[in-house]
Structure formats: C-alpha cells, structure tokens
Design a protein around this nucleic acid. Structure first.
Ligand SMILES: [Mn+2]
Ligand SMILES: [Mn+2]
Ligand SMILES: [Zn+2]
Ligand SMILES: [Zn+2]
Lengths: 146, 146
DNA sequence: CGTACAATGAAAACGATTTTCAGTTTCTGT
DNA sequence: ACAGAAACTGAAAATCGTTTTCATTGTACG
C-alpha cells in the first residue's frame, strides 16, 4: 500500500504551468527540476535555493518563493506541515493521497488505502458543518531511524 | 459525536503548570485565562496579547509568546494548522480528539468517533515506518457560513 | 524579427518571533 | 514573617523568513 513517491513527469509539470499562462523561464525550470528530483523529501525555500544554485548560480531567492507559489497553485507540489515548521514543500502525488513522514530524517512516503469518506460524512451528519476537505498525516520513524 | 469544546478547568491547567515547575505569575494567569475563555476559537499570539491587555495592560507580547510555549508544552493548548497560516492556538481537549474547523469564521469543534488505530496499523504493517502519531483535521463551513 | 508584458534579481521593507538584559516577582527554606 | 536563589517579566534590539519595489531582462506570440 505505501509507495515510493511516483517518479515525477517534469514535462507534465511544464504543460500544466503553460496551461495556466505561466512562461517557461530558466529559473522556473531549475526550481521545478529540484522539486522533481527530490520527490522523496521535503524542502524549504532556502534548501531549494541552495540546490538550484548548483545548476544555475544566478538564481535568486525571491524567484524561488515566487516559483514555489506557482507550482503549488497548479497543484504539482504541496506544502508540508510539521511540528518543527510549516515552510517546506514536496512533490504532490497524483490524486488524493496521504503523507507518512519520518520525524527524524524527513523522509516521506505516500500511502493510499485509507478511505475516510464514510467516516467523514458520518461526522458531517452529526455536526453543524458542511465538510469540504480533510487532512491526514502520519508521523513516525523510518526503518533506519528507529 | 461532535461536541462543544469541553469547558476548561483553569485550576487543572495551573496544577499542570506547577507540576512542571513553572511559577504561577500574574501574566501567566492572564494568558491562560484568555485561552480558557476562548476555547471555541483559535487565537494568534497578537490576539491573545490584545485580549490579555484588556485585563492586564502591563502584559508584554514577549511574555505571551513565552507563556503559549509553556501552555503547549504541558499540553493544555495546541497549535492549529490552517491554509492561511499556522500561528494560532486553541485549548486542547482532554484525550485524543480531532479538529473540525470552519474555513470562513474560524469556529472550531472537536469530534470523536473516528478511530484510526486499525487503519493506521494496517498502513504500518505494509510500510518501513513505525508510526508514532497521526494528525487528522476536517475543514468545512459552519452552519451560518454556508 | 519586434513588440508587449510576464518574470527576474538586488535591495529595501516588512512582520513575526527570538534574544538580551536589568529589574521584579515567586517560591523555598529558615 | 524573612532572606536568598532562581524563575519570570517587559522593553529594546536583534534576527529570521517572507514580501514589496523597481529597473532590467527574457519569453511568447504575431
Ligand atoms: Mn483522504
Ligand atoms: Mn486520531
Ligand atoms: Zn502548519
Ligand atoms: Zn463559519
């Protein structure tokens, strides 16, 4: 059921960005590439900046922020919330999946097979809310960190 | 199943703080009181500061930060993560419960009756992680916000 | 090509949080 | 009740991550 983060199709990312009217610039390509190549772990804007400059030293931190925003907007990456902070991102899986994060090394897996729709609508029926979304994350220790 | 946030026993909070070696000062009491009296909604440090100064004008913002840290450490409040930001807190319910938050007005309910232990251990069995914790939050619209 | 405009990077501004520090308050032991 | 030690406080300053501004550059499109 748990799966390695599906390897990313960078061309598809670029298509989505173009479809949303964004231009495919060098800095954008570099940032996207960094996120795509590190789809198994979370990265903060600064970490993306450092990795990006290895390939493209001119890259500016401001552009990293702006590009992460775009990538999140078109849905190819997502923000990850952790006890230590909520400013890192990871490649989003296709479809709706949940995160399993290692508290120690930050390694990430996605898992499927937990379907909450029944449980959620049961709660909805008994509350005064219309539930639009849910957010489930598992936290633990990866094999080599136990 | 959904329930009004259980009304808070402030004395119990103070006991817990004392047990952890913290001193019961005036500013701490004021901050705790603000969190206890607003157990149905989330508050940012600045909001706590403003509410606190209504009762105790000398209160400093730095002390609010320090006190929220203590309250979280002893487990009587918890940080709430939302799309708009992750810097607000709310009184924690007794025992393990999950949050149901209104996207519009910020109103909060807790709900019980969703037991994930089975689902979670099923995922654990098929992953390389030992799962220590989970984090489930429902997001929607409260009655009067729909 | 040439033009229109989105996107860039550097610097400055900004807001939230943390650190520093000198003075105050709380608790403990007498 | 009292003295002393240590925790705690508020104001100011420092710091950190993020956003805004702006002059310049690069991309898409005809
Ligand atoms: Mn789900
Ligand atoms: Mn649970
Ligand atoms: Zn968060
Ligand atoms: Zn509402």
């Amino acid at each position: 059921m748990p799966a390695e983060p599906s390897s990313v199709n960078l061309e598809e990312w670029f298509d989505r960005l173009e479809d949303s009217g964004y231009r495919l610039t060098k800095p954008l390509r570099v940032v996207a590439e960094v996120m795509a190549k590190n789809s198994y772990c979370t990265l903060s804007p600064t970490e993306v900046y450092d990795l990006g400059r290895e390939h493209y030293p001119k890259l500016g931190l401001v552009t990293v922020y702006r590009t992460l925003e775009k990538l999140e907007e078109v849905g190819v990456i997502q923000r990850v919330h952790q006890a230590g902070g909520c400013n890192s991102y990871i490649a989003a899986p296709s479809g709706h999946q949940h995160l399993l994060i290692c508290r120690n090394c930050g390694r990430v897996e996605y898992f499927q097979g937990i379907d909450l729709t029944d449980l959620v609508s049961r709660v909805e029926a008994k509350s005064y809310y219309s539930i639009q979304d849910h957010w489930l994350q598992l936290i633990g220790l990866y094999k080599s960190c136990q």
